[in-house]
Amino acid sequence: MSAPAAILPDAPRATVPPPVIPRPLIELERVAVQFGKGEGAVRALAETDLRIEKGDFVALVGPSGCGKSTILKLVSGLLKPSAGNLFVAGREIGAEDVRIGMAYQNPTLLPWLTVRQNVMLPLKIVQPYRKHWRAKRNGEYREKAEALLAQVGLRGFGDKFPWQLSGGMMQRTNLCRALIHEPDLLLLDEPFGALDQFTREELWATMQDLWSTKRTTVLLVTHDLREAGYLANRICVMSARPGRILEDCAVDFARPRSMDLLYTPGFVALTQRLRELIIGVRTAATL
């Protein structure tokens, strides 16, 4: 599949002074998160170390309530760590120029905008696109949105409204909205969780396709081990609350991966091992 994004030159990036040693895009150093204070405090995340290289595709899996989404919120800057250091692109969180795209399970499309207008929303908000919004919204930006929509299989749906789409199509639109501003980092919080099995598998393929052409760094939070195994380069397994990373395993199946991969012995062995790890964690937590 060709890369429609290549039609347009990359947007000029803000100049970041080159770091002396190449550092990973995301670094968590003994980061902990605690909600509340004193007796009633809840430790959501134990001291956690995590490094994600630029261009990597990392999946976070673990039992529910283990702090997977907390890590996403930390990285996106929505949440401040209670302890430890968090660097994104070599800088303390909050001061960075990193562009972030985000997609949740709930597509949260704006019902009063067409699919195309929804996809273009980040261009209206994020610099450097924002300053050319008025001049380019009917030209370059529109074409950019159409190209991205075509890549996820929604060619010709730009003028529809979100409520005219199926759940899978809405989630495709949501992915486009998270990617239109060419983010350095894409954060996915169970984006395919609410879809039926077949739609989900279609979207996995779409996601792999998008990642292969754009090489955006992706951090995916999921419950689905097959999803993690199919999509990610690395899977981090988290313990029960307060969460920490138990195991960090590389997934080195050749790309592009096909759905048949899911039924090969190697893949089954991987998901089985991960499953046992998580079940072990769950039983340990309930004991």
């Binding site: 949740y104 949260t108 980040p122 908000i125 994020v126 909205r177």
Partner: peptide
């Protein structure tokens, strides 16, 4: 969630 998406877009 929508507010989070908007906030991550700064």
């Amino acid at each position: 969630e929508l507010e989070d998406v908007m906030k991550t877009l700064k």
